[in-house]
Every structure is written in C-alpha cells, then in structure tokens.
C-alpha cells in the first residue's frame, strides 16, 4: 500500500473528528471526537515510521530507524489517558453543577 493511502485515511479521520467537534454539543461526544483526531495522528506517525524503516532497511539490515515514531505514539497514548482522566472529571463536575453536558450552556465567556 502506498503511504499516501494512509495519509488520506488519517486526514479523513481527522476531519471527521473536526466535523464532530463542530456539530455536536454533547461534551462527551466532543471529547470522543478529540480522541478520534489523536488516533488519526497516531496512524500517520506509525505509517511514516514504517516508511522510513523500509528505506533504511535497504542499506542496513539491522537498522532501528523508525523506533522513535512509535515511541511518540506511545507517549501520545499516555498523554491522552491522562487527559481523559482529567477531562472526564471536569465533565462530571459540570454535570453535577448544571445538570447537563450541553456545551451551549457553557457560554460564560460572553459575559
């Protein structure tokens, strides 16, 4: 599979995530869309990692090129896990206070 198939897959996932963030009002679904976008980036990183690894293999059979990209994906997952923890806690707080998770009620910035 050529690499730009993966690029387009990633772009498509990312833009679906964007559209979700823009159209939905449920804070939890928006949150899930953000996870979707993070994963779109992840798959891109893995695809590039593979691409560079294959290029390097042609000259060196024992190369480790591309490991870093996969480690980055790993770190993104770590950060995403932390983010979800805090984000869901905030949503719970919000629900507890205004009994809704509709972000349209969160328009305090206007005032």
């Amino acid at each position: 599979m050529p690499v730009n198939y993966y690029i387009f897959l990633s772009v498509a996932l990312f833009c679906i995530g964007i559209a979700g963030v823009l159209t939905r009002r449920n804070a939890i679904i928006i949150f899930m869309c953000i996870e979707l976008m993070l994963n779109a980036v992840n798959i891109l990183l893995v695809a590039f990692s593979k691409m560079h690894h294959l290029r390097a293999l042609a000259t060196d059979a024992a190369t480790t090129v591309g490991t870093e990209a996969q480690l980055f994906v790993f770190f993104i997952m770590v950060v995403a896990a932390a983010e979800v923890t805090v984000g869901l806690a905030i949503i719970v707080m919000m629900y507890r206070n205004i009994h809704s998770v509709d972000i349209n009620f969160l328009n305090r910035l206007k005032h």
Binding site: L22, N104, L106, K110
Partner: peptide, 11 residues
C-alpha cells in the same frame, strides 16, 4: 461574534 460558545470559536 462573541457568542461565548466554544463551538463557534472553533468553527
């Protein structure tokens, strides 16, 4: 323009 809604800002 400042609706106070994060969604419109992102848009």
């Amino acid at each position: 323009l400042q609706s106070g809604q994060v969604g419109s800002y992102i848009l």
